[in-house]
């Protein structure tokens, strides 16, 4: 009795392994399309972002290197987000690269909705920083047009609620190894300044 139970268990284990999940061997074009559609459920049909229970960021037009770093960061839990951890840890490097390229090529209009009264102040901070608080001008890394560069993310058209939340909770969510350059900046900005600069970038195209 014991032996046959063990044999059954072994057979079951072998079968389970054989049929386990999706293979990382070769992701076909349709696999990438299916995965993109899955991303779009939360991030928006053109990856423009979506205000779910949580603000879900725009991925359209994002820097390829930045997306790759973030997806890897989620999977390795250097960036703390349970939902994105589950998304990220099943992705092969090839899939990550394919997704990042696809998102980079999208260009929908910004979602909008931020208070326009904050725009003037936001532009001032974006272009000039806050010298008294050791906050560098955002342009220096993110570019004049906020389209980013390499590992520095595009901010143009990013959700107002998302940018505000990220700058407020920077160190709670992101480890030093992932993005240490932003830590003193996020800490140096006041709540009002965060809202202003978030509103400003949210309207940029």
């Amino acid at each position: 009795m014991k032996v046959s139970a063990l044999q059954s268990a072994l057979l079951l284990a072998v079968l389970a392994f054989a049929f386990a999940g999706s293979t990382h061997a070769e992701d076909t074009v349709s696999d990438v399309q299916a995965k993109l559609q899955y991303c779009n459920v939360c991030h928006g049909i053109s990856a423009q972002g979506f205000l779910g229970y949580y603000p879900i960021p725009r991925l359209a037009g994002q820097q390829v290197d930045y997306i790759k770093n973030q997806l890897q960061g989620f999977a390795e839990q250097k960036r703390t987000n349970n939902i994105m951890f589950n998304v990220g840890h099943v992705l092969s490097p090839a899939m990550i690269a394919a997704l990042a390229t696809s998102f980079h090529d999208l260009n929908p209009k910004p979602l909008g909705g931020a208070p326009k009264a904050l725009l003037a102040e936001g532009k001032k901070i974006y272009e000039g920083g806050v010298p008294g608080a050791n906050v560098a001008a955002c342009t220096s890394c993110h570019g004049e047009d906020a389209k980013g560069n390499g590992q520095f993310p595009r901010l143009a058209g990013q959700l107002y609620a998302y940018v505000s939340l990220q700058l407020t909770n920077w160190s709670k969510e992101r480890s030093e190894t992932l993005s240490s350059v932003m830590t003193p900046i996020a800490r140096g900005l006041t709540d009002a300044q965060i809202k202003a600069v978030a509103a400003y970038v949210s309207y940029l195209e």
């Binding site: 299916a34 899955y38 459920v41 939360c42 979506f50 779910g52 229970y53 949580y54 879900i56 939902i83």
Partner: peptide, 8 residues
Amino acid sequence: NVAACAAC
């Protein structure tokens, strides 16, 4: 490819 319900 099923998103987490909690996200929305």
